[in-house]
Design a protein around this nucleic acid. Structure first.
Lengths: 347, 347
DNA sequence: GGTGTGCGAGAAAGCGATTTCCCACTGGCC
DNA sequence: GGCCAGTGGGAAATCGCTTTCTCGCACACC
């Protein structure tokens, strides 16, 4: 049913004033009854107010409350792309934790554009959110970084809280993902399985997450005698992964045994490229990713990767920002190598 | 860097009042300069105000604006589960379109609980959003439906707009997905490929989307001589799909040639179950899904499904709610069967 | 020169809440 | 009986902004 206009006549929502009048009490008493202040209010009055509110279907105007109280119940969340499973899982964690704290989440997408990110932060600041969580990936040395820092500083000095997801060069709280250690461990495990000759598909230079993962992987290989023979740097997306793998194949695989993609969606794209080239991932060339997003256990062969508990990361980011972080929350997030069939033990 | 407390002393954000004082003009003039009212303001004053605002890093308090204007720039979005690619793609569409309209999106997750959904609608109503978009799936005959309808009616009569995604028995605008026709067409194409004996994995009875897809599939089979021999109804999730397929296999496949899962994540789960049972999806038993979420082109074999342009659905939902829908927007969303290797032509 | 008329600055009245402050009343205590 | 502390209701101030409303001023027109 593509429904029509509203049936009842349009009228302004009931205000607290209406409720007070209906209950025959003052504004102050109505307010106190509905949100339970420090002051006691006569039980009979309270009941009358509650009844009046129910009758009028009263819903407090959160904006007005925010103005009067000088504080909101809002959390602002910035991600690069909501449709990307990495970010959508983090968002799910933030939303869940926010809900527990009875906070409301407003979300925006930077589309991986730092200019946009800056502008969004500016806009969102107008909401006076209690907390701002920035999960969009950082770029090293981006020209907008200084302005972003200034904006966030201003936000903080007005009493707001900031938390980043993933490491950043900006001086704010952050949920530490330890990309380096994860990739390092992965590399060691892979050489342990008998692999020696590697290639990597990573994001554009400057994307901090990508750079760290590559550095960690490289370090792990160096420590255990693996050789990173080629590195390609396409976009940090599924299609980037596909394109990167194609580039590797077109350039001639020449004995490369395993391709490490800096995140799972790239790895999945890479596997499709391998297949489209008439090869079999896992058999002809092994593939490993990073993140352990849900789908990678369902691809064929299931993908070896480094697990990050992404939803937990989202939850933790919010706790961190709210200043409710336990010592555990402050520690780097535990990452764990998950070996699956995309990297079979090598003869 | 797990940064420390704010460096500058904490102070209240600059208000319009501060800006006006700094610029040496009245509050009214400052307001008019910054948001461009119908009234003209002396260019010199305007410049002074702009300069003062920049100097003080002024950011208008959106809550206060909302109270004063009696209207917000907020869109409320309800989804079942943000981490589910179906919903995250829709959300991405909503966010993108909202951004174009310079609206802010607040998001909440029902976790597939209609009780929660109702409560969230109540809370979000307090924000006085311009628009509420409900994308969480509907349940036929749910006891909370009446209360939900009442709540949304109240919201509408206060000037809010409501839009559902996917059909609903509730009398509100909705983006029509035409699940029935899509599933019908899929069934016809599959019998056209030579399949005759089918099973279906669909959601719990009462989930409208699942029911419609099953009904359409059934109709398509009946019209073309296919037989739906078994139907299982697990949860409407990836794990549900896995469990459903396991149930089918454990019950004995007995000549079933193709399994239709009512959405892609279930289909992907089903494929894993097939594989875990030592069979090969596509070869031993064909699989088809619904939605065409991004990952299904990367699974093996690539999944046959019915494409819904989910991001476009999200965008359309917002336009519909804002009353900006074109005739095109009002029409049911175009669905399209996408045949891939998970349903090879049959001998 | 007198009088409309238009323009635009600023004072002030909201918007829908919360919270301070005032004050009437009750009850305990000497 | 007088006094004081405690209680709790309601008037009014307040939050940060928008938007009427008032009013002085300049200009044009007769």
């Amino acid at each position: 049913m593509s429904g029509d206009a509203a049936p009842t006549t349009r009228s302004a929502p009931a205000t607290l004033h209406d409720v007070a009048r209906e209950a025959g009490v003052s504004l102050a008493t109505a307010s106190r009854s509905l949100n339970g202040s420090t002051r006691k209010v006569n039980e009979e009055y309270r009941q009358r107010v509650l009844a009046a509110a129910a009758k009028l279907n009263y819903s407090p105007n959160l904006s007005a409350q925010a103005v009067a109280r000088g504080t909101t119940t809002t959390v602002a969340l910035l991600v690069a792309d909501i449709a990307d499973p990495y970010f959508s899982q983090i968002a799910a964690g933030v939303v869940r934790e926010a809900d527990r704290e009875r906070l409301i989440v407003t979300m925006a997408a930077t589309e991986r554009d730092t200019e946009r990110e800056l502008e969004l932060v500016r806009t969102l600041r107008g909401q006076r959110p209690r907390v701002m969580i920035l999960a969009a990936s950082r770029r090293e040395g981006d020209p907008n970084n200084a302005a972003l820092e200034a904006e966030l500083r201003a936000f903080e000095s007005n009493g707001g809280q900031v938390a980043f997801v993933s490491s950043t060069d900006l001086p704010f709280r952050a949920v530490q993902l330890d990309n380096r250690a994860g990739a390092d461990a992965l590399a060691r495990d892979l050489t342990g399985l008998g692999y020696r000759r590697f290639a990597a598909i990573t994001g554009t230079e400057g994307i901090r997450t990508a750079d760290e993962r590559l550095a960690g992987f490289r370090a792990g290989l160096e420590a255990t005698g693996g050789a990173l023979e080629r590195v390609v740097r396409p976009a940090f997306t599924r299609d980037g992964g596909y394109a990167g793998m194609k580039e590797l194949i077109d350039g001639g695989l020449e004995g490369i045994e395993l391709v490490f993609a800096a995140n799972d969606v790239m790895a999945v794209g890479a596997m499709s490229a391998i297949r489209d080239a008439g090869l079999t991932p896992g058999t002809d060339v092994a593939v490993a990713g990073f993140d352990d997003v849900p789908t990678v256990r369902d691809v064929t062969p299931p993908l070896t990767t480094v697990r990050i508990p992404l939803e937990e990361v989202g939850r933790r980011a919010l706790r961190l920002a709210l200043g409710e972080a336990t010592a555990e929350d402050e520690a780097p997030v535990h990452t764990e190598v998950v070996l699956r069939d995309s990297t079979p033990r090598r003869g």
